[in-house]
Design a protein around this nucleic acid. Structure first.
Ligand SMILES: [Mn+2]
Ligand SMILES: [Mn+2]
Ligand SMILES: [Zn+2]
Ligand SMILES: [Zn+2]
Lengths: 144, 144
DNA sequence: AGACTAAATGCAAAAGCTTCTCATTTATTG
DNA sequence: CAATAAATGAGAAGCTTTTGCATTTAGTCT
């Protein structure tokens, strides 16, 4: 089971940690804030402190189990690290997030880092726009 | 003079606004936090409140005069909008920022937005790495 | 120049997110 | 099952940013 992942990270296998991992697992492509995770725990009837949620998410991030993203708007969001890197396109209206990978872009980034004399460590690419949800897309307003 | 830019934004031409624009102008490629701008104002002997700095920067952003970036680490940074879009590569050690534009990446982003059914509004691409400053680059540590 | 008014300012207070402190509880090891 | 280092919960505290409000000021019209 994935409890081993927690052990491998050098962390004790505790209730909060197992449950947080489960919640992120169930979240799938959704990206959850610490507050989201906290609320989901409460809704499941689990008594966990918000401070613990923050601590555990940070530890999981350090261990490479989860990734943290800073999209626009105050708070960080987290998702399970599924092994393969990806970037995001976010709807500025409804918040919908779609993931994508583009090898052309990845390659150009590596070239740019070399050109500029940087040893690349990481990158963050987020496209913002309006998704095709009718409530979000701004169709040409028909005749004023 | 550039006071006209302030007027065009529908804002009164006040001391704080003119001075903040000057500071950003002098900053060149540097990216300043609100706190940075505030400190520079004080050092110039100008009495301006931090709240005003935040307010003015937000107004300038809304007017398209400045751009706000959320690199890693707590606070937003600002720079004068020089008209042409660019992305950033940031040194995770010393904080040095280099700007770049890459049409290949720009084009792919537009294609991806279309593929995913998004009307693109904006994007943010930041590469993180270690710059070639000796204190920053991690040369292969020679023997123990 | 002086008067008027909406806008701008400074300060302090408050908000939002995240981290820290510390007393108590718990997982792990032997 | 005892021992102990690690983890937890609750609240305090920290940081960046925003807000409320009394006061000041830029722009406009005599
Ligand atoms: Mn993702
Ligand atoms: Mn820039
Ligand atoms: Zn949408
Ligand atoms: Zn550097």
């Amino acid at each position: 089971m994935e409890n081993q992942e927690i052990r491998d990270a050098g962390l004790k296998v505790t209730g909060p940690r197992v449950k947080i991992l489960e919640i992120l697992d169930r979240a799938g492509e959704r990206h959850l804030s610490a507050e989201d995770v906290y609320r989901l725990l409460l809704e499941s009837g689990d008594e966990v402190g918000l401070a613990t949620v923050y601590r555990v998410l940070t530890q999981f991030e350090a261990a490479g189990l989860v990734e943290r993203h800073n999209f626009e708007g105050g708070s960080s969001v987290f998702e399970l690290n599924k092994g393969e890197h990806h970037d995001h396109i976010v709807c500025v209206i409804c918040g919908k997030v779609v993931e994508f990978i583009d090898e052309t872009i990845e390659k150009r980034q590596r070239q740019i880092a070399v050109e500029k004399g940087f040893e690349i460590a990481d990158h963050s690419l987020t496209i913002y726009g309006r998704c095709n949800n009718p409530a979000c897309s701004r169709r040409k307003e028909k005749g004023g």
